Amino acid sequence: MTTNETVTTSAGTAGAPVPAPARRLVLPKLAPAFYQAMVAVDEASRTGLDPVIVELVKLHASMINGCAFCIDKHSTDAVAQGEQDHRLLSLPAWRETPWFTARERAALALTESVTLLTQGHVPDAVWAEAAEQFDETELAQLVALTATINAWNRIGVSTRMSPAAK
């Protein structure tokens, strides 16, 4: 959005953009050892995985969890790596598009199952599909990556991290 554009609110009136909810606390300042450990875990969770799959997994989990900060960060990171806009915009409907490879689809399905554990755990069919596309080491890294982004999402949502506060 440019500075000359207006935003229509849910009430239908035009006006200035609505500010993000106030951030509740700054975790890196208040729990620095934990925050640095999370940064290290995040880096370790990506080891050996295709950077495109890493960003798709992080973005998809962040969309499911509604973490605005992480959605902004990982969509920006994906674009910087050359990801195409139409794929990013189609991510919520990835099953309905032809844009994603078999490996990406398996990673996205596993991401959904791990992220939405209360909706049926990780079905055997989802695990089998992922195991067909990824070797055991990659599969372990995908589980680690998904667990890590879910932790980041919970930090971002609960503390109200905002993409506007970067």
Rank of each mutant, 00 (worst) to 15 (best):
D50V: 07
D50H: 04
D50K: 03
V52D: 02
I53E: 07
I53G: 05
E55L: 05
V57P: 09
L59C: 04
H60E: 00
A61I: 11
A61E: 01
S62K: 05
I64D: 00
G66Q: 11
G66N: 14
G66I: 15
C67T: 10
C67E: 11
C67S: 15
A68C: 08
A68M: 06
C70D: 04
I71G: 01
D72M: 10
D72T: 02
K73P: 00
D77H: 04
Q81G: 13
G82M: 01
E83T: 06
Q84P: 04
D85Q: 13
R87D: 00
R87W: 03
R87M: 03
L88I: 14
L88T: 14
L89P: 00
L91P: 07
L91D: 01
P92Q: 00
P92A: 02
P92T: 00
W94M: 11
E96T: 12
T97P: 03
P98M: 03
W99M: 02
F100H: 07
F100T: 05
A102K: 12
E104L: 12
E104V: 12
A107P: 13
L108K: 06
A109M: 06
A109S: 15
L110R: 03
E112T: 14
V114G: 03
T115M: 13
T115P: 10
L116V: 15
L117G: 09
Q119P: 15
G120S: 03
V122E: 02
P123A: 13
D124W: 00
A125K: 07
A125R: 11
W127A: 15
A131H: 05
E132S: 11
E132H: 09
E132N: 12
D135L: 09
D135W: 06
D135E: 01
E136M: 11
E136Q: 14
T137M: 04
E138R: 03
L139E: 03
Q141K: 09
Q141G: 02
V143Q: 01
A144G: 03
L145M: 15
L145A: 13
T146F: 11
I149Y: 01
I149P: 01
G156S: 10
G156L: 08
G156H: 02
S158F: 13
